[in-house]
Design a binder for these strands. Structure first.
Lengths: 348, 348
DNA sequence: GACAAAATGTGAAACGATAAACTGAACCGT
DNA sequence: ACGGTTCAGTTTATCGTTTCACATTTTGTC
């Protein structure tokens, strides 16, 4: 009868732990002051030094901590930032989430984490759900191309993007990665080694008709005269392995595979091993994003390194600045460094 | 003048985005009903079908979503669970966090993430901070041995532990890993291969005098007649590498190294490579927790596998059940599976 | 010592939602 | 026609905090 509603899945039915904590009113009663006075005193405003001292003492005694929920209701801010990552199954996203969480914490902000699980279509829904939770801001590292009403969402909620765009939405900060240069370096590197037929594994190509990394691939390939084939690929380890097997089994298989995420490169590595192909003698392999483990796999993986810490610091910085009322610089482009390791070698 | 206080770092000074959303009152006004009526109607209670329909229509039109902050203030529940992990720098913890987040979401709960960054002393503080945010429950995967007043915290806040204990605190659920069996299988495996001198890398040994995994090592070593040396080690990749170099450089270096976390094993692997030691010919290596990448490093790492998904499902299940008022089964022990791969071989 | 201006404190109204208690109707069977 | 249930609402109180407006005292100045 009652049709499904966006109102709320189901509200708490039963209670378990009361856990009542001291309130500002308790302090007021025990000090004989008004609630208002206590509120001011706790923040060190208005009241006389003596009163402030007295209130503080009582607060400490009771172990009082202001209820952020009540504060948020009154004041608007929750002190919490939503962190939406496109795919926590991807190692790089894990690393990024880690770094951003740490950075947010250093600013006294809490992290409400949501993971779109590699499904671009989920992202907007999750973002809206975070917004509904009244986060103060949003940091989005999207995997997908952001259809739908991001514009509207970002207009209401300060949003920072990391490594991705949100369909023309007005964001308060953007951390971009210089994909063109990154891709260019990889392709030049492979070109210099004599490679001419290269398979490029990209996550879910069809989704975004004009993803920067893919455009970069096409552009640079054209410049260098390389034959690059874009292959759409699932994000996970297990997603790329079968795909790699297929590509590698071809008659005129490419001499190099360039994966637009290290996670995928690991899967390809696995596939090569199964087929008995040696890397880099039989095929060269290059990753993207340079996960910490990439120098530990065998052979160590050539990859494009971006400073995740710098990205995280910038993203959080943009958001914090905006929340503080400054609308300063709002975009940073992180430059790549190609870490050449043993997985890429000359064509034989 | 105003001495530091726990009251609140500093409260929002300036505002940036108003972002007013439709409230229940707006609906009330536009439908000519009382606020209460709308509240009931939105939940499909009491009101007549016609009214419910009318309210729903208006709510949809305005894009109304109930404010969880206001709800939390009134009703007590926030719909958010705190997830405290001991060290997000550790890959296994990353995997666990991912799984738990997904599981929480499937129950309609939000995840407030905090990372102790490998610092056991931080954990309680962070947990308290999460509690202050009024999460409905807490899931803790501690790295450390929980000094301090966890007892008090857990008494107020439903808490579930994963792979760790909280100094006698009364938890509503516990996901344990059968370390004794896990360690036993590894040591028996190594014993069967002829190893007798084994270095065991454990994270920050001194911290907990009687950690299950370490006790298991001592017990099993005694049974099998092995010479096991416990070596304390930092959690990160870069923490274990220098340590490995030291251990490996010894004159009577062990014939096998057993790392109580895959992350550390990766670092050791790196160290071996630097020293030109072959694995497993020169030295055998075994990890713990079986990270997805462990079958991809070279050589593939022998490791102890626990079902992270099962752990996550149980942990969240315990918490959700408790929140629903059921105090059922509250402990699960996850059994290990030894994944024997190429990194461990017979003594030569 | 008079009078304005600070300083210090209080009361009440928000913030947005829920829930207990109350109010009329309509409806029921006898 | 009479009490007694249900139905469909409305009033009012409440959650814990901040803040506006006002009231009272203290201080400062000439």
């Amino acid at each position: 009868m009652s049709r499904p509603t966006r109102y709320g899945e189901r509200y708490a039915e039963s209670v378990a732990t009361p856990a009542k904590r001291p309130t500002i009113r308790q302090i007021a009663e025990e000090t004989g002051l008004s609630v208002t006075a206590v509120s001011y005193a706790l923040r060190g405003e208005r009241m006389s030094a003596a009163t402030i001292e007295r209130v503080q003492a009582k607060a400490d005694e009771l172990g009082y901590i202001a209820d952020p929920v009540a504060r948020a209701l009154r004041g608007g801010r929750t002190g919490t930032v939503g962190l939406l990552v496109g795919s926590l199954a991807d190692f790089w996203h894990q690393t990024l989430a880690h770094a951003i969480q740490r950075e947010l914490r250093s600013h006294g902000l809490h992290t409400l984490l949501a993971d779109a699980d590699g499904n671009p279509a989920e992202e907007l829904v999750l973002a809206q759900r975070l917004a509904a939770q009244r986060v103060d801001g949003l940091i989005v590292a999207p995997v997908g191309p952001a259809g739908g009403s991001w514009v509207e969402l970002a207009a209401h909620l300060p949003t920072v993007t990391v490594a991705g765009q949100l369909a023309g939405a007005e964001v308060v900060g953007e951390v971009a990665f210089d994909q063109t240069t990154g891709v260019g370096e990889v392709l030049r590197h492979l070109h210099a080694l004599g490679h001419e037929r290269i398979a490029v594994l990209s996550w879910a190509v069809g989704a975004s008709p004009d993803r920067p990394s893919e455009r970069a691939v096409r552009e640079q390939a054209a410049i260098l005269g390389l034959r690059c084939e874009l292959v759409p690929c699932a994000y996970s380890l297990d997603g790329s392995r079968p795909l790699a097997l297929e590509v590698l089994a071809r008659e005129d298989r490419p001499t190099a595979i360039f994966c637009l995420s290290d996670s995928m490169a690991y899967g390809v590595l696995h596939g090569c091993r199964e087929l008995g192909l040696r890397v880099p003698e039989d095929i060269s392999l290059v990753g993207f994003d340079d996960h910490p483990l990439s120098r530990l796999v065998d052979p160590p993986l050539t990859s494009v390194n971006w400073s995740v810490d710098r990205a995280a610091r910038s993203a959080v910085g943009f958001l914090v600045d905006h929340l503080a009322g400054q609308a300063d610089e709002r975009r940073i482009v992180i430059a790549p460094t190609l870490a050449v390791r043993a997985s890429s070698g000359p064509v034989t």
